[in-house]
Structures are given as C-alpha cells and as structure tokens.
Amino acid sequence: MAAITEMATDSNDVINDGGTGDGIEKSTDSKPEIESDDLKPKSKPEYDQMKKLVAMFKKLNPEAKEFFPSYKRNTNQSDDFVIAIKPSGEDNKKVAINRRRRNNYNQGRRVRLPGRASKAQREDSIRRTVYVSDIDQSVTEEGLAGLFSSCGQVVDCRICGDPNSVLRFAFVEFSDDQGARSALSLGGTMIGYYPVRVLPSKTAILPVNPTFLPRSEDEREMCSRTIYCTNVDKNATEDDVNTFFQSACGEVTRLRLLGDQVHSTRIAFVEFAMAESAVAALNCSGIVLGSQPIRVSPSKTPVRSRITRSPSPN
C-alpha cells in the first residue's frame, strides 16, 4: 500500500522504483475481474492495461477542487459540516494562520494591558493637571489651591522651588478635565506680588502614600512647617543639614534624613518651629550642600517621632 501511495504522489520516482512491480501485480489481479464485469469482454495486452492503470493513478490530485452536487450546494449546514472536516491543504493552512494570528493577538493584548492601563491613568492625570509658574515667595500652597478652586475641585497642589529663579513653579491637579481647562484662563492673574503663568502640565503629580498623610489637625499644622528636600549629598549628615537650614531659615525642631550609601543622593524632611521658616526654605533650591544642589518643596507628610526617641521639647 505504501508503494502505491508513493506511486500516486511522486510519479517519476515510482516509475523507476519497485513500485512498478506492485503496479504490475495490481493490474494482473484486477484484469480478470474487469473482464468478468463487462458484458463484452475485451482482451488487451498486459502492457497497455498496466500503462492505463499507472496513468489513472498518476492523475489523482489531492489538491483537486471539491465537487458538490446541486442538491448539496443549496444546503449551508451540509457545507459547514463538510468544511469542518476537510483535510485539504488550503483549509489546513487557513487553520494554522488563524491559530497563529489569534496567538499573536492574545499575546499583544496580554502584554499591553498593564502598560496601557497605567499609561491611560497617567495620561488622564496629566490632562487634569496644570503647570503654574512665576509664583512669588509669599504664595502658599493653600493660597494657590484656594485661588484655583474657583475653576473646579482641586485634588492636589505642589509648589516647587526653582533652582534658576527666585520665583517658583507649581502643579495643580483637578478632579476633572474641565477644571484644568478653566484654570488656563487664570494666566496673568496677580497672585501675591507677581502675575502667574498657567500652562497645561506635561507631567503628573505622584500621589503620596496615604499612610504618611497627616491624620489630625495638629499634623496638618506640622506639615505647614515642614519641607521636603531632595538631591542631598550622600556624605551629608543630619547635623550638616540641620546646621544649614537653621542658619539659613530659622529654628529646626525635627529632621529626618533618609537614604544610605548605596543610593547616589539622600532625602531630608525638615520641620521648622515657624511656618515662615518653611516658606523661606523654598528659596534654598539650587544652593549647593556638600557637592550637590538641593531641591526644596513643601512636605505633604509630617515628621513623626521615632518610637525609640522621645519628642524633643519645643
């Protein structure tokens, strides 16, 4: 049987191989039956009979187009059933292609989902945030938030010291896009002693870990006296930072220096005795402490006492 299959598949090799022998045997077997079936038996040379059989087999084409009788063509259900079980090459290729495409689609979706989700959230946050610049030193975050609350509900407000200017810049986040668009019309408004500029923001405000937010009115008051300092030289000590801010801005009541020798810079939270000192500290952005220019921002979190240390008396 295998030989016969090969004969049908590859005609050139079959003729040269032993398949021809099988062909001869087959023709010998079938010849008497053919004669008996015919009403008029005809005697033919064995060679001619074999040649016809070989030619017949050689023409069997597995890629032949299917033939559907007229009564079958009108039945869609039957067609679907037939298509489902056809083993022809074309259908097999289609199945493979579909499978491959589906896999790619799934993989793409799986890979993109987390990225797309966080990206979408970030883009939404950016759309709801405006960038405010040319803010003079007398303006506080509460004051700025109060002004912009006329455009919509203010979710967050951050004032940052500008290392290159005595004026500051801020980011204000609203609860919806409309608030951010309305805020753009406040450009040029006099806040403090200087008109501010309002532009769409290109970055989002990162939310503070809720566990670090002030839990009471006292802690909120502490926040107003606290600044958050980044890009601190890793070789600086708490005493260095304390001395610096005490001499530049005023009395320091608490200080927390975060980080270790592994990271290139450290972070400091500095609590002053008076809110005015914290506001003045924003001017220290850009001043070199150790070997790095520091950046100062109002802190969103209070400096809480360590359990191992008793609170220092004020």
């Binding site: 049908a8 598949t9 069997l60 890629e63 083993p87 022809s88 090459g89």
Partner: peptide, 13 residues
C-alpha cells in the same frame, strides 16, 4: 486509492 492519496497529502501538510 484516492483516500490514501488524500491521507498522504494531509500528513505532508
């Protein structure tokens, strides 16, 4: 014979 040719072709595919 046609079934055998078809099966062989399917395996090739």
């Amino acid at each position: 014979e046609a079934m055998e040719v078809l099966a062989h072709s399917f395996l090739q595919q």
